[in-house]
């Protein structure tokens, strides 16, 4: 196959080469090859490799020993797995609160007073801070001896609460830390969305006497649908990827009560106590299947939209 760069630009008058004749059909493939190759090797193939590893027992060094469904059988009899799964579900639902919270802040900030641009940026910027730092910041915030959190609830005669050391609160405490930047993200999506809301429709609705909640619900939110869709996608993905915060804030504790599947998988497969690659892969497969439900839904939505064009 001829390298396209080598084709002199004056070929138009000469007898057309094979490449030239098929240029339109070939070019996309030439452009796709590097990207697709990279992606296949690092993303697509590994998914299938993981699935096949999950049917083996393997310490990452020697020969993997096929064990059939043994890993899955053990998984379904493993308390830590159910704890992780339960926490994953809590994460999924509570994380979605970032969407209404983001909308609320967006509505609050969607004004044109002096300095509002700066306010918007300052409200948004927690999103660009790494989760590692957010985790550290919040673990100090929650610290039972000197944390600001206990200081504040102390003003109301409450506490002190050992948020990250108490198995009843720990997951919620971590989720709150995660929602903080996620809300900022949703806020910026909605601010952009609100900018594009059709003013004529709003005026028309106002003339019809709509205002407040009714206006928001029947006129504004339907127009924000694209923003909501993206907010939904990124929030779900974020919830299921929750690893950094847990690793930094609690390391899964106390007594493993704040684990989620992504963290448990890492613990099993790569920590001192583990290197059970097969078992870890099985956990990853379960997590993948959960994610697959959402991925399928996203793709289906996109597919419909593509068709609609």
């Amino acid at each position: 196959m001829t390298n396209p760069v080598a084709v002199p630009q004056t070929t138009a008058e000469r007898p057309r080469s094979w490449y030239k004749r098929n240029e339109i059909a070939l070019t996309p493939w030439l452009f796709l090859i590097p990207g697709v190759l990279f992606f296949l090797v690092y993303v697509i193939f590994p998914i299938f490799q993981s699935i096949s590893i999950s049917f083996t027992e393997w310490d990452g060094l020697g020969q993997a020993e096929p064990v059939g469904l043994e890993n899955y059988r053990e998984l379904f009899d493993d308390d830590a797995f159910y704890t992780s799964l339960r926490n994953n579900i809590i994460w999924l639902f509570l994380y979605l609160l970032a969407i209404p919270a983001g909308l609320f802040i967006a509505l609050f900030l969607n004004q044109t007073v002096f300095g509002i641009r700066l306010y918007k940026s300052l409200f948004f910027f927690p999103f660009v801070i790494s989760q590692v730092v957010v985790g550290l910041v919040f673990s100090w915030f929650y610290d039972p001896t000197f944390g600001l959190f206990n200081e504040i609830i102390g003003w109301f005669g409450l506490g002190p609460v050992n948020v990250l050391g108490d198995e009843r609160y720990v997951t919620y405490g971590i989720i709150a830390a995660g929602i903080w930047p996620q809300t900022a993200y949703c806020m910026i999506l909605y601010l952009t969305g609100l900018n594009a809301v059709d003013p004529e429709q709003v005026e028309a609705a106002r003339l019809d006497g709509a205002k407040g909640w009714r206006m928001l619900w029947y006129v504004i939110i339907p127009q924000l649908k694209p923003a909501t869709f993206i907010a939904f996608v990124v929030t779900i993905i974020g919830a299921l990827r929750s690893f950094d915060l847990i690793s930094i804030m609690t390391n899964g504790g106390p007594f493993g009560e704040s684990r989620v599947l992504s963290f448990y998988m890492f613990e099993v497969a790569l920590s001192e106590y583990g290197f059970r690659m097969g078992y870890g892969a099985a956990i990853a497969v379960i997590l993948f299947l959960i994610m697959m439900i959402f991925i399928t839904y996203f793709l289906w939505s996109m597919y419909r939209e593509e068709r609609g064009r």
Binding site: E167, P254, F255, G256, E272, Y273, G274
Partner: peptide, 28 residues
């Protein structure tokens, strides 16, 4: 052994916070 130590120490920590869970911990 490392794996046992991990499960064990998690149980000990749980016991220190929730001594009533002892039966569950020992079974685990």
């Amino acid at each position: 052994p490392a794996e046992m130590a991990k499960v064990g120490m998690e149980g000990l920590q749980e016991f220190m916070v929730k001594p009533d869970n002892l039966d569950k911990i020992l079974a685990r």
